[in-house]
Design a protein around this nucleic acid. Structure first.
Lengths: 204, 204
DNA sequence: GAGAAAAGTTGAACCAATTCTAAAATTGAG
DNA sequence: CTCAATTTTAGAATTGGTTCAACTTTTCTC
């Protein structure tokens, strides 16, 4: 373990991701040429392709870090949610949305989403689908948790409702990143409005 | 109007679309080289770029025809829907889904969706967003129609519910085209299940 | 610590979309 | 029929992601 080769490998990974993160934000995904990323990371173009199958996978690694952070932040809400279905959902979704632009610009999100539909079988495509699934599971887990707490009717199909809520939120988020002028508070308000009927229906 | 020049222009448009449709299906979007499309359409590469800004816009024109057909088919359902909320929704969504692979392969859908998020301001991106909006409006219109017919509670926020249902369906459709082995009946069943809670909540 | 094997690095070459240019063809008006 | 305007054409140039064969470095073995 941890021979020179291992350390160099980890270091190159880090340098590539750092360089890409900087350049993606500065110049946009398309604007950040592989050549420039390689230069900034002080490796050759070939080495980048040795570490990542293609440009999209570099972005994928960054997205993955971001979403995992969001998932972590969400665990707290599921563990002890606000004592009210509407607030609980709004809090969890709020965490997702408010964190979403920490590391990734809207343009980076657009590219990431595009690649994940374009190449669903690439490493990134698979990873992205997996992350979506985990977010869905977390929302479903919240519904189930609220059922345990007696805040949601026990006969409700938790997983189905979780999927419905996640899918709606995700679509809204996609539209949000597609419009540069769209603002977070309005996004949250729109989602709250959409969820209202559902919240009323599943609450005890 | 309709001089020779106009007719030739329309004819070239048609030939390009026909050639592209064939080649996209045969070789996939990436596999269909512009050169090959030009050859098959019996025009030069330059002419293609004179008619469409880029390769994506050609696909965009095909998608647009497909979705417009679906929208047309949906009008009938909105005008005289089945006398039951669940069936009405299932019928409309069924039309969307069953028609969806008439002209477009899953691979073409993936590309189209990817391009529309990647370049939301391109002609295609704008058109695609517009089509989504029309589909959303049609679902909302169905809810409102069902309210008029006394099948949906009058105090329900029709547009919000329409958006929720469309967004969920659309996300499910995205996941559907991402997996080549996914089948239409299962997609419909999954959406039905997700909508069930909502249907129960809004029915009189 | 020398030599061979394994693993990793390199950058020039390749490919396809797109742009550009100058020439050729087509059209419609007079 | 002729001319000017518009459009099409072929093909060369550009561009940037990706591939690959030759070269280095690291590790392993004795």
């Amino acid at each position: 373990m941890s021979g020179l080769r291992e350390r160099q490998k980890a270091d190159r990974h880090r340098r590539i991701i750092d360089a890409a993160t900087t350049l993606f934000r500065e110049a946009g995904y398309e604007g950040a040429k592989i050549e420039a990323i390689a230069a900034q990371a002080e490796v050759s173009i070939g080495t980048i392709y040795n570490y990542y199958q293609n440009k999209g996978d570099i972005l994928g690694a960054i997205v993955s870090m971001e979403v995992n952070e969001v998932l972590n932040a969400g665990r707290g809400v599921v563990a002890s949610p606000p004592a009210n279905v509407g607030d609980a959902l709004d809090t969890l979704i709020g965490i997702y949305i408010e964190h979403s632009l920490n590391y990734l610009s809207k343009e980076m999100w657009r590219q990431a989403m595009a690649i994940s539909t374009q190449l669903p079988d690439s490493p990134f495509g698979q990873a992205y689908t997996g992350l979506d699934r985990e977010l869905t599971k977390q929302i479903s887990a919240l519904i189930v948790r609220l059922q345990e707490l007696g805040l949601v009717r026990p006969d409700i199909d938790g997983p189905a409702v979780g999927e419905l809520i996640f899918n709606n939120m995700n679509m809204m988020f996609i539209e949000f990143v597609k419009r540069d002028e769209a603002k977070i508070p309005e996004l949250r308000a729109a989602i709250r409005r959409q969820n209202r009927v559902l919240v009323a229906a599943i609450g005890v």
